[in-house]
Amino acid sequence: MNSRGQAAACPLIVYGNRIGTLMEYFLELFFGGLTRGSIYALIALGYTMVYGIIELINFAHGEIYMIGAFTGLIVAGVLGALGFPGFAILVLAVIVAVIYSAAYGFTIEKIAYKPLRGAPRLSPLISAIGMSIFLQNYVMLAQTSDFLPFPSLIPEFKIPGLTGIITSSEVVIVAVTVVVCVALTLFIKYGKLGKAMRATAQNRKMAQLVGISVNTVISATFVIGSSLAAVGGVLIASHIGQINYYIGFIAGIKAFTAAVLGGIGSIPGAMLGALILGLTEAFATGYVSSDYEDVFAFALLVLILIFRPAGIMGKQPTQKV
């Protein structure tokens, strides 16, 4: 009786290799979910922006993320050998990965999608799947099929009051994502190119007629989406500590799910969808079982799509009268 009362007042549970209160456990799961959601968001934005402009699901986008992570690994290896400090390596790795992935995104659009612009919608979709398989195998052959260790580039620092609950790399990932999302939102809202992107997404023909170069806008969309994925690739690789040629597939599918959940084509939708998906997965893993992580993620997707077929923030199709 007495011991039960104590347990209710101050429930201590064992998780991982530590003991803490339920609240601490909840917070740890919450921050883990935020981190996951952040990475999903960085990738999902690329899916949703490309879909918004050319109504194509760019299945090669996950591979862009993977290439970003590999570029980061190579840069980190070289700079590490040259004795650069950790933080400088992180910044340079992200910058080089962004440039590299952006170049890949730009080129993929020119090679695999642009020639098919007038074709039936299935053709570029198949082309995208082909590009995805090609890039996976290209990286596998050029690098290796084994998991490679990725150095921890994010410096360790203490977060007052939350030690052991949230790691410094989680803080950095979430902070970077928030900054990127705010910057992107402002750019789309007020930037000249951002406005041109919205206009092109809403009516491509009219965009041409006011003098917007549609090709430039499409290229810019791929470059921006790929850059965001590269940022995510380097950060998460450093957080998890290993990469291989296949990481883009799973991350890509999850991020795509997040984009659909939020309403594909909608930028705030992708951010929200990613956050919801990340948190759901984290709590499902923590409170139920890690075996059910994907079950919960996709059950949530099904549930939301039943009630809002176009996603949470997607445009619900309206009847034209």
Partner: peptide, 26 residues
Amino acid sequence: ICQVPEGRLIFPELSISENLDMGAFL
């Protein structure tokens, strides 16, 4: 040379002032 196309083709999710901005895009 500037066209006002058939069916107007307003950008539906840009505000009126943004629609005007797009006209002056170049």
